[in-house]
Amino acid sequence: MAERGIQLDIIRHIMIVTKPSDHRLIDSTREVAIWLIESYHQIHVYIDHNFKNDYESVISEHENYKNRIHFWSTNETRENIDLIVTLGGDGTVLFSSWMFQRDVPPLLSFHLGSLGFLTLFDFDDHRRVLRNVIEEGGVRINVRMRLNCSIYRNNKKETDNIDFNSEPSESFQVLNELYIDRGDAGNMLEMILCMDGCQITSIWADGLIMATSTGSTAYSLSAGGSLVHPDQNSILITPIAPHTLTARPMIIPGFKKISISVPFTSRISGWVSFDGRNRTSLALGDTIVVTASTYPLLSICRKDPYEDWFRGLSQILNWNHRIPQRPT
């Protein structure tokens, strides 16, 4: 992640992303949408189509809303969006990242209760924050590295070599991590780990996590991985319950090309998911190639992103908190 100041273009199209299953957010979403439309005549607002029925009466009562309130679905292209506003937790930010598999518009995240590592602004202060972003345009952003994860299938032919110059069968941009696991099998999964085409090692384990620095406070941390400040463009490799105790987590420079294969000598096949989504099977001989994505996530931050991160460690993880001893 690199932190920098930028000047946004004139904002005309704002996409609001909330957790679809949380109906408590309906009123908050409507509050933001109506305020934006009434305060700024040039702005169009895009809302989750799952909330469409909740806006029919509002649109019918205000003719000028009809052409300025739009509804999006996850399978649509969204090339005209100037700003993403998320209401919810870190999962809502991950969902927003997932919807934009190429260029991601600047993202402004509000939490509605507990602070998150990615949701830095309090919803109670949303009007002031939005006003500053829309009217002034000058913001500080965190350029958060994402991982480009490509699956190459071997079609279960042991004698065939995979052509990595060909098009992958599937490819995803990941903000937090990809996770390879053994599924419901009782045996360990064997994986071959390579860097820049050279084999590093073979790992026998329940699974393997490859995370960004942003994802270092998520699943990787639960599996014993290190905390890495998002300013470091790194790839974290964290084995899950490895057979050898010396198979410790590693931190690799983000510019390296990493591949993980399930060899034909493995007793079982595997599974892989990307930021908790698109879970798919890995057959023997399949390979996943991981590189730094050319499409990072641009998240609008407060004045000091380093202070934000350490504050998150303290308030979310209770990092290094201890009960003071009684004086002797």
Rank of each mutant, 00 (worst) to 15 (best):
D103Y: 13
W204H: 08
A283W: 10
Y55L: 07
H321F: 00
E307T: 04
S97R: 02
K52W: 01
I268A: 03
R24G: 15
E177V: 04
S96W: 12
R30N: 09
A205H: 08
T294Y: 04
E31H: 11
L178Q: 02
H44L: 09
L227W: 09
S109G: 12
I300D: 06
R102T: 05
P253N: 14
D27W: 00
P296C: 10
Q232D: 02
W271T: 02
A223K: 03
A2Q: 10
H62M: 04
P324W: 01
A292P: 05
P239E: 02
M1C: 09
D275E: 03
L297Q: 09
P106M: 05
W271Q: 06
K257M: 12
G183K: 14
L208P: 02
D48E: 10
L8E: 08
D275L: 01
T92H: 08
P249K: 06
P305W: 01
I260W: 00
N165M: 11
T201A: 10
L189T: 03
G285M: 07
Q232M: 15
T217W: 12
T74E: 14
S269Y: 01
A223C: 14
C149Y: 03
V228Y: 05
S266Q: 05
H229Y: 06
E190S: 15
N278G: 00
K66R: 15
D82S: 10
Q315F: 00
G215Q: 12
P263W: 01
D231T: 11
G88R: 10
M210T: 08
N233G: 05
H23C: 03
H23L: 15
R279V: 00
F310D: 00
I134G: 12
I11D: 08
N148A: 13
P242F: 00
I323F: 13
Y295A: 05
V290E: 00
I11P: 08
S220P: 02
A185I: 00
K157F: 11
I300V: 06
I34M: 13
L87D: 13
T29R: 08
S222L: 07
L175W: 04
W319A: 01
F310R: 09
T291C: 12
I252N: 06
L108P: 03
L297S: 03
D27I: 07
T119G: 02
